[in-house]
């Protein structure tokens, strides 16, 4: 296994968080992992992204120049990262917010109306979790149990209250992809 995923969107959409959850879960399942964020002023409301690698072999470069999957939460990120996807790779697009089309035809495109699905679940905070779920539906690299235990470890105190809705978001993303199969 050598998953190289870029997650990108506006600052505040939680792309860093889903990247960390996936990385942490991968580590707990014995994989070699790295998480590399963009940093600087762009974190404060601009575009943000992180590079996540889950691999059986030690991670060489933590920078992804050939992505196996990308998770896209806004328009600018699609233009920026679409060229980095390997042929046959996967692009997960939050179609609630991204209104431009993927131009390549050598990749798999999954459009997930993550914001609408989130509102249906009663929370506008979890489109990121739904996108993570969509990715996991196609790439079940970590189990839901592991993900849950990581959330329990990293979201403590007040944040713990959000674990159930976060998990329901992930499940919603998985179900959405499975239903369009």
């Amino acid at each position: 296994m050598n998953e190289k995923i870029i997650m990108a969107g506006f600052g505040g959409q939680g792309v860093m968080l889903i990247g960390q959850l996936l990385t942490y879960s991968g580590m707990n399942e014995g994989k070699q992992v790295s998480w590399l964020p963009s940093y600087g002023p762009e974190m404060r409301g601009g575009t943000a992204n992180c590079h996540v690698i889950l691999s059986d072999a030690p991670v060489s470069s933590p920078i992804i120049t050939k992505a196996t999957s990308i998770i896209i939460m806004n328009n600018p990120s699609l233009g920026k990262f679409e060229p980095l996807v390997i042929p046959g790779g996967d692009i997960f697009v939050n179609s609630s917010l991204v209104d431009i089309e993927v131009e390549r035809n050598d990749v798999n495109v999954y459009k997930i109306p993550a914001n609408q699905l989130a509102i249906k679940l009663g929370s506008d905070k979890i489109p990121n979790m739904i996108m993570l779920g969509a990715y996991l539906a196609k790439h079940p690299v970590v189990s839901m149990d592991t993900l849950k235990s990581v959330m329990e470890k990293t979201m403590q105190g007040k944040k713990a209250a959000f674990i159930p809705v976060n998990l329901s978001g992930v499940q919603e993303g998985i179900d959405f992809i499975n239903q369009i199969k």
Binding site: Q20, S34, L36, P37, Y39, I63
Partner: peptide, 9 residues
């Protein structure tokens, strides 16, 4: 910056 910002086990 990369060493400083990245996460690894």
């Amino acid at each position: 910056g990369m060493i400083g910002q990245m996460m690894e086990p």
